[in-house]
């Protein structure tokens, strides 16, 4: 039983890590800021979600698990706001030029 949970953790966290890597590559390779932003926010949100999901079964207590979910939630909120702010700024700058 324990082995299965561990395997699930490993698979989920690895998938998350791969998504992060993809996001990072997108950040480096995509041509314009908006698509870079898109790559990073998509991949990171999903990647973090997978990692948190993978780690949940490893949490030692319920409150530990709740903290993990809080971390994910807060990261979601701040990432969403930051992307929005950046996108607005880009939009404005482009509108001006």
């Amino acid at each position: 039983m324990n082995g299965l949970v561990d395997i699930a953790t490993m698979v989920l966290v690895s998938m998350g890590a791969v998504l992060f890597l993809a996001g990072a590559l997108g950040l480096l390779r995509f041509p314009d800021t908006l698509s870079r932003l898109h790559a990073v926010s998509k991949a990171d949100n999903l990647g973090l979600g997978l990692i948190v999901m993978g780690l949940l079964p490893q949490a030692e207590s319920v409150s530990g698990g709740l903290k993990l979910i809080c971390v994910w939630l807060l990261a979601q909120i701040s990432a969403a706001t930051a992307s929005q702010l950046l996108a607005r700024k880009i939009h404005r700058d482009e509108g001006r030029s």
């Binding site: 809080c70 807060l74 909120i77 701040s78 706001t81 929005q84 702010l85 607005r88």
Partner: peptide
Amino acid sequence: VPGPLAWLARILPPF
């Protein structure tokens, strides 16, 4: 003040 910032400033502080 950009909208998303105001939104964040309402959502985040309680946390």
